[in-house]
Structure formats: C-alpha cells, structure tokens
Write a protein that binds this DNA or RNA. Structure first.
Lengths: 198, 198
DNA sequence: AGATGCAGTTAACAAAAGATAATTTCGCAG
DNA sequence: CTGCGAAATTATCTTTTGTTAACTGCATCT
C-alpha cells in the first residue's frame, strides 16, 4: 500500500466519512508513476487528462513563450496535486509541460476515468471538490502576491513560507515563478545580503 | 423569472441534462441582490460565504495592502461568478472587499445553503464543479500572464480580449490588476500611442 | 586530471517602473 | 452652466528590471 493512498484515504474519511475499506473502487483506478530527475510527465500538445498526487519529489509546470524562453508557472511537491489543467479544464492539448525536478513518485489517475468512477460512486465527489479548491486557493494566493507585492517581497515571502522548496530548486525556476529574470533575482539576493550586513 | 436563472438553468441542462422544471429546489434558495454603484457587497472581516452570479454590472475584488493602498485582484462582470473566496475556501473572515463599480444585479446563494441543497440534490453537483473550474481557469490565466508577459503586453492582452471592460472601468483599477501603478499605465498608453503614430 | 556545460554572479548600459508632485481633464452634483 | 473633486497625464528623479555578455564556481563525464 503506497503512502499516498493512505493519505488520500485519510482525506476521504475527513471530508466524507468514507472508510478506507470502502475506497477500493477509486484506488483500483489509480497507479503509481515513477519519474527520473528531469523526466517529462506531460508534453506540450499531449491530450491525456492526467491528475496526480505527489508522493515524493517536485514537479514543475512551465510553458514555452513565443520568444522560445521557458516560463515556470508553478512548482508542486509532496502531498500536493498536479493536473494537466489545459486538458482537464478546456479539453484542449496542453500548452504546458510538466516535468520532474527530482526523482518523483506520483499516484495518478486519468481524469476521464475519475469521472466514470464518480458517476457510480458519487460519495467520492468531495475529493474532487477538495483538489479543485486547493488548486484555486493556491492560484489565488499567487495572483494576490503579484498585485500586492514587489518582486523582492514575493521572494521574501517564498523564503518565509517555503524555505525548504527554495533550497531544493534551481534559482532560475524560482525567478521565473516570481515573474523576473535570474539576473534580477541574483541582484535581489545581493541587496538582501547587503542590508543584512549593513 | 430573472434572466440569470434562465441562463443557469440552461447551464444545468447542458452540464447534467437537468430540465428547468427540476431546478426549483436550487433556485428556491437563491435571491436577487441589487447594488448601487460603489456599494460594498462583502466587507473586510465578513464571514458570510457568498456565491453570486452576475446578472448585470461589474464587481471588483480588492484588498487593502499593509501600506493602506488598495490592490485590485480581479474584476467580474455579466454572466460570471463571484465568490467570497476566503470564507468559502478557508472558512476564515474575508481579507478581500467586493464592491460594485456600476449598478449591479446579482443572483446570490449562501454557500452553506448550497451545500445543504447538494446533499439532498447531488444532481446539481456539476454546477459547483463548473464554477470552481471556471474560477480556476481564470486564475491560472492571470498567473500565466504574470509569468509570461510584461506589463505592457498584459495591457495589450486585456485590450485585445476585454476591450469593453477596459472602457467601463477606471484605469487605476486596471493598472492595479496588472500589478503596476496608474502612472505607469498612463506611460504605457502613451508609448503605445506614440508607436502607433510614428 | 582535464574538458565540458550549466547555474549563478557580476558588470555595463538601456528601458521601464516607482514615488512624488504639479497640472490637466473629466464627470457630476449643485 | 459652473465649480468641485477625483482620475489621468505629465514631469522629475530614483530605483529596479531587462538585456547582453563576461566570468566564476561546481558538478559530471570521459
């Protein structure tokens, strides 16, 4: 039994009072996926509607800009959901690429299959609701940080709230998530150090 | 019968094949709210879990920054949903303020009441799913624009996609949504004009 | 060990944004 | 129509970011 299944069973119990023994119809449709460091999980143009729970590792979602550069939309790590949002929300080929930054273990399900399961087992519906709310919450937080904070403040925030993450991930991806260039992030770090010393 | 009810009945039919005649248990719990221009719908600190569909008008969601300035998170208008997301997602008092920019008509429901209705009428569940996905989609779009586009490009985007909106709303709110100051937006507009002429 | 390659820093300059204040424009109430 | 107040523009100056390129450090591969 994978650790993520236990976690999700606990979640289902908390959300809907469903006992682990009664979750078989759902977890029968999930499978474990293992990704090597730097391995791509979803490619640009892929149409699979993948939904996954991260058991171990870090995933990065990014897009290729019109000028060819990459822009990192977000990072997700242990106990978080990651979903091919273009395919799930809009049923269109993914413009985004999802890639593991570390050796990563996922518990995945095809969203179409999940919908089938939900038709016969509506009692699992709170779980879908939960992950949609979680993703919405995270997106709104990020939006909020863009309209209320300067790049430096956003970086300080990230350090304060996700110090572990910043240390596990190359700065260039952090910079991109913050909406700035790696050069600019480097200068922010320097300014922060200088202030700290002075 | 309000126009929004008809719209939402159509939506429920498209999503779940539910006939308008069978939507009474849901719409019995909704009510129309009318707001004057500049009237506040949800205050900072409010705990009501309000979910509304905008029949007519424009709503602005904003937050008071630590320095006292306002930051506009988003605008919503006809046929869109607006929800007190702090209270609904986190069950905490709203840090955001929701205010009408024009005389506005909403069809509203209390989220707790909606959840009660959904317990006895799970057939409406696709509607909740729909609005969560819609909001998630919009948030992700905005996030994407922050990491892939410059302020000027974000403004051009907004003009291209929501020209009508830009003309209905004071520039200062547009600027704030774009993550810049009104002064800076004014300069962007000037640069765009100059380029167009030159 | 040496070569290769990439992430991160630094430098130099151009472009853009922030802050503040003055000025103009615009909408609207009287 | 007039006058008031808010919104938008403009100006000036400072700070920050973008861009490009050089350089530094570090890990990896042979």
């Amino acid at each position: 039994m994978s650790a993520s299944i236990t976690t999700l069973q606990q979640l289902l119990f908390d959300l809907a009072g469903i006992l682990p023994a009664d979750t078989a119809p759902l977890f029968a449709m999930t499978r474990q996926a293992k990704l090597a460091a730097n391995e791509t999980y979803i490619r640009e143009g892929d149409t699979e509607r993948r939904l996954a729970f991260i058991e171990q590792g870090i995933m990065r979602a990014y897009i290729i800009k019109s000028n060819g550069d990459e822009a990192t939309l977000f990072l997700r790590w242990e106990k978080q959901f990651i979903a091919s949002h273009d395919t799930i929300i809009h049923r269109r080929p993914s413009r985004f690429i999802y890639r593991a930054l570390e050796p990563t273990t996922l518990l995945e399900i095809d969203y179409d299959v999940l919908e089938e399961v939900l038709k016969t087992h509506p009692e699992y519906e709170p779980l879908r609701n939960f992950f949609l709310m979680r993703m919405l919450s995270e997106s709104l937080n990020i939006m909020e940080s863009f309209v209320t904070l300067s790049p430096e403040e956003r970086y300080r925030n990230l350090l304060a709230e996700r110090f572990d993450l910043v240390n596990r991930v190359p700065d260039k991806y952090i910079a991109s998530m913050l909406g700035i260039t790696p050069v600019s992030l480097s200068r922010i770090r320097k300014r922060m150090l200088d202030k700290g010393k002075g």
